[in-house]
Design a binder for these strands. Structure first.
Lengths: 172, 172
DNA sequence: GGATATTGCTCAGTATGCTGACGATCAGTA
DNA sequence: TACTGATCGTCAGCATACTGAGCAATATCC
């Protein structure tokens, strides 16, 4: 009791809010883990001789798996904001990895296709991407890594609708 | 066996890379969880009548807990890049929540102080911040939430040096 | 069929985050 | 003390992310 009292007084000289340690804040931990994940991804990919961001990679892989999809569908599949997708596709097109052409069925929409160069890039980059995923979880045992991913998936599923860019399955 | 074979052929017509589902990628899950965490934070804080980002909140709370610290130390404590801090402090100062003044001991450095208004804001905003942290973990049991935070902390500690902005304790 | 609502995409503006560079300053050493 | 290297803060430039707005086109409803 005495210890606690001293601790509180030490942290808070006045009777104000009890500011928790940043490491007790899931939001802070989320930011830190993301920060490390991006840095590891970029380092591994650059070591492999490529220049592709995590976001660009996810978009390209999803275009490959769903040829001809439009931008809104792509955004839904990987949970990007639709305004973000525009710039990401711009850069994939500019690098010659993807193509954007007007849809014949809906003149508002753009159909996305991966190019041969994009396919080649995806194939060659895969070991680096997989290596990055391993490094991100490097401090955890295999079982802990699985558990972390399970808990993240569960928390994400529960909060899916809370951001402007929820995950959406493709329409049939 | 048959099922698996069909599935693989369905996903991969040629003998190319096996593109994993995004939900098996810790990097993707990290981005999604962060995305939701930020959205929840902003929504809760705005509901409480304030306009403060997660990054600004963390900086302000850390300034309050370490009066007079310089920008590099602040960056280290919350693992921001030092180039990011400049803009964050700019906005805190512009909102009247913090002050930046030249250090008397080191003319390169700037000493940071929280203002009365900043203190007031921190105090009033705390319930919203705590509510946001709860909502982020809303899909998990209390035990699962604890476990998620433990695993994140462990993974982050192992990867601390891998980003340009590692966490650093303050010098004594 | 025509008014209305919705949807696909883009844009301007703002806030992280990062790379790489720079000037000013400090610290350590020859 | 002069030189060298490191450090503090800032800047330009780029890439996410988001808000809110708008245009064009499609869907829906009467």
């Amino acid at each position: 009791m005495l210890t606690i009292s001293i601790l509180v007084n030490d942290l808070e000289t006045s009777a104000e809010t009890s500011v928790k340690d940043n490491n007790d804040m899931p939001g802070h931990l989320a930011r830190r883990f993301q920060q490390i994940a991006v840095a590891v991804f970029l380092a591994e990919v650059e070591d492999a001789g490529f220049d592709l961001t995590p976001v660009q990679y996810a978009a390209l892989a999803t275009i490959k798996a769903n040829p001809g999809l439009d931008q809104v569908t792509l955004a839904g599949l990987i949970a990007y904001d639709r305004t973000t997708i525009t710039g990401v596709i711009d850069r994939l097109v500019q690098k010659g990895l993807a193509e954007r052409r007007p849809s014949s069925r809906d003149r508002r929409a753009r159909e996305l296709q991966i190019t041969d160069e994009g396919r080649r890039t995806l194939r060659k980059i895969t070991p680096a991407v997989e290596s990055a995923q391993r490094i991100m979880l490097g401090g955890l045992s295999a079982k802990e890594g699985e558990e972390l991913m399970r808990l993240l998936r569960k928390a994400i599923a529960a909060g899916n609708e809370l951001s402007r860019a929820p995950q959406r399955d493709a329409q049939i």
